[in-house]
Design a protein around this nucleic acid. Structure first.
Lengths: 215, 215
DNA sequence: CCCGTAATGTTCATGCGGTTAACTTCGGGC
DNA sequence: GCCCGAAGTTAACCGCATGAACATTACGGG
């Protein structure tokens, strides 16, 4: 039977994916706290507990959404970088790439605040103790950060000779872009007009691209 | 009767404050999502619904905690700035003040991650529509930001003559410090060693203090 | 072609948290 | 002394996460 379309079979056929999609929709609409197992099941037309056949629980579902969101974020950055026209001057090109990646990052956060928040949600919404002291589960690496860091390193290599205008460290740049995104998407700057927003974004990008670092 | 101490009267005498304290403790220990009305009431030794005599509901309690946390954050910044030794050079002094404020900010976030997150929680943990289009309720102003902005303005005024080394815009600086705080307190950088942390903080501060801005 | 088994869903039940409604106690003003 | 309103209390409803026991179906031997 056509698993995903026919519909009325007892066995759904692709529940896991269906639940993920529903959960992503929920996160998109209302952020990570809105990712509710029962609601996702309801939307897929299945009983609440069916989800437990495919996920450990809400936590794992949320983690899956988080990973999805992180991929989307990185994709948004790469799209923005790809749109950027090249430049003859390699330094200029590198600067533009950094700026474009950052714009893609912030743009994603502003256009998809719910997903963006989900991308960085703790996934431990109520865990008290430190369940993992050994940390066997390595964090899966966040591509958005890697992209940014590599672009900055490239820029730093090119501009090594110029005095006092080295770009920011990867982590410093990430901090700036991440903080800006949260302030704009969900925080105190959320009500800024499009113009006000672009002013703030430009100022932050300038700081990131040309800021000096002591390290 | 001694309102806050005697204890066993039917009427508590200072329930509102007691609940706020309990809620602050909860946020301190586990962040805003742990601020649970029933638990706060339990700790104070009162029935869950008693809280409704003093708060509209969980939302208002959480907002109260948030305001408390914001005050604490600003206080941490001012303490750090006050500890900072003066300097003969006014520019240097201004730079030091900015850096000290930032350190106070990040320090608070790292030492009190739960409270810090509470300071910026949306307080609309499950609100779908936009209940307030007119926005009559002006946001109460966030002192942490004001402190930072003013210090940066002072620095910018002093350093107006120097070429290519203007400090960051208030919003850009706030972005950097806020993002750094979240990454360190609760985000992907939360497992950094004290040393790694200080490297990242220094790099970010350098970017903030000496970064150029186009605006 | 039939059957057993495991995978996949379902129903019931428990416990927690937010919130409302209706009742109770107590501190004071008259 | 009495009555009222503020501050608490109990009971009840709803949604959510989760676990246990039961039902249905797909499928790979025989």
């Amino acid at each position: 039977m056509a698993a995903t379309s026919a519909g009325k079979t007892y066995h759904h056929g692709d529940l896991r994916n269906a639940l993920i999609c529903a959960a992503v929709d929920l996160a998109t609409a209302g952020g990570p706290e809105r990712v509710v197992l029962r609601e996702a099941a309801r939307r897929v037309g299945v009983s609440p507990t069916a989800a437990y056949r495919h996920f450990e629980g809400r936590g794992e579902l949320l983690r899956t959404v988080r990973n999805h969101a992180r991929r989307e974020l990185a994709a948004s950055m790469e799209r923005a970088a790809a749109r950027e026209p090249g430049a003859d001057d390699p330094v200029l090109a590198a600067e533009r790439r950094v700026a474009a990646l950052c714009r893609g990052y912030v743009g994603f956060a502003v256009e998809q605040p719910g997903l963006y928040r989900a991308a960085f949600c703790a996934a431990h919404p109520a865990a008290a103790g430190e369940p993992e002291p050994g940390r066997a589960t390595a964090e899966p690496e966040i591509r958005a950060f890697t992209l940014l860091r590599e672009a900055l390193e490239a820029l730093a290599r090119l501009g090594a000779g110029r005095p006092g205008a080295r770009p920011a460290t990867g982590a410093a740049a990430w901090s700036a872009v991440h903080g800006l995104s949260l302030l704009l998407a969900d925080g105190p700057l959320r009500r800024l007009s499009a113009h006000g927003r672009s002013v703030v974004v430009d100022a932050t990008l300038a700081m990131v691209v040309s800021g000096t670092t002591t390290v």
